[in-house]
Simulated assay, not measured.
Amino acid sequence: MTGVPGVDVPDARGRTGLDRAGRDLAGNPDVVVRDVEVLSSSWYVNRRTTFERRGRDGAWRTEQRETHDRGNGATVLLHDTARRTVLLTRQFRLPAYVNGSPDGMLVETAAGLLDEQDAESAVRREAEEELGVAVGALTRLPDVFMSPGSVTERLALFAGPYTPADRVSAGGGLAEEGEDIEVLELPFDEALAWVDDGRIADAKTILLLQWAALRGPFSARSALPGQGGVVLDE
């Protein structure tokens, strides 16, 4: 019998046992996982999980859900309060292009997958690769799930100050990974206006910009120490 890539024989990335994810979960006594099927594992992993769930009426029901596992990620909003600017990226996003974005070019905070690093190290890596900035102190905000109905990714949110002196390169991403990223320095108020008129349509970016306005470096609360997150020194 031919083996299943990613299950009992290595897939293209050398992985096996991908059908074990979720089978040992025990945090919710009202959910019992019965089966996990690997639908594809070309780069990311798509699974179909069969489970029993006890509803609020006490009855048990068998359900199936598909999940898309791309790993966890991290993102950072870099801000210069003295000049009242933020540093963002613009790049082509095919999924957005095929689902209504006029040109697929999205304005975003720098972000990337963890790739087996801790979240803080990963976000420092991404800030340097995409924005050309060596990041100092960071504020970590609570992690969020961006699309919990189908995508497993948990996204770590960070914010940190920058100045022109912190620029160590032109940024733009890694050419060997096919990245072609434009660095955008925007006045903070203009970035908020772009949220209002739809020029910024990326959820993580909107969330961080609104945090910065309401509780972060551009808010009335910013003069109060320890507000809005945990500060991590380099």
Rank of each mutant, 00 (worst) to 15 (best):
A159Q: 13
A159E: 13
G160T: 02
G160W: 03
G160I: 07
P161Q: 03
Y162I: 03
Y162E: 04
T163R: 15
T163K: 08
A165N: 10
D166G: 14
R167K: 15
V168G: 14
A170M: 13
G171Y: 13
G172A: 13
G172W: 12
G173H: 08
G173A: 04
G173T: 08
G173L: 09
G173I: 09
L174Q: 04
L174R: 12
E176W: 14
E176N: 07
E177V: 01
G178M: 08
G178I: 03
E179I: 03
E179Q: 15
E179M: 10
E179A: 11
E179R: 13
E179D: 11
E179Y: 08
E179K: 13
D180F: 11
D180V: 12
I181Q: 06
I181E: 02
I181L: 06
I181G: 02
E182Y: 01
E182N: 10
V183F: 12
L184A: 05
L184M: 05
L186S: 07
L186H: 03
F188K: 11
F188N: 08
F188I: 11
A191L: 08
A191K: 09
L192K: 02
L192F: 00
A193H: 08
W194E: 14
W194G: 12
D197Y: 02
D197L: 09
G198A: 07
G198V: 07
R199N: 01
R199P: 03
R199M: 05
I200R: 10
I200Q: 04
I200S: 04
A201G: 15
A201M: 06
A201K: 14
A201R: 14
A201Q: 14
D202W: 15
A203Q: 15
K204F: 12
K204D: 13
T205R: 09
I206P: 01
I206E: 09
L207V: 13
L207S: 08
L207E: 11
L208Y: 02
L208Q: 10
L208F: 02
L208P: 02
L209Q: 01
L209K: 02
W211T: 09
W211C: 05
A213L: 01
A213Q: 14
A213W: 00
A213V: 00
L214V: 11
L214C: 11
R215V: 12
G216L: 02
F218C: 01
F218G: 00
F218T: 00
S219W: 00
A220Q: 09
A220N: 09
R221S: 13
R221A: 15
R221F: 14
R221H: 14
S222Y: 05
S222W: 06
S222F: 06
A223H: 12
A223W: 02
A223Q: 12
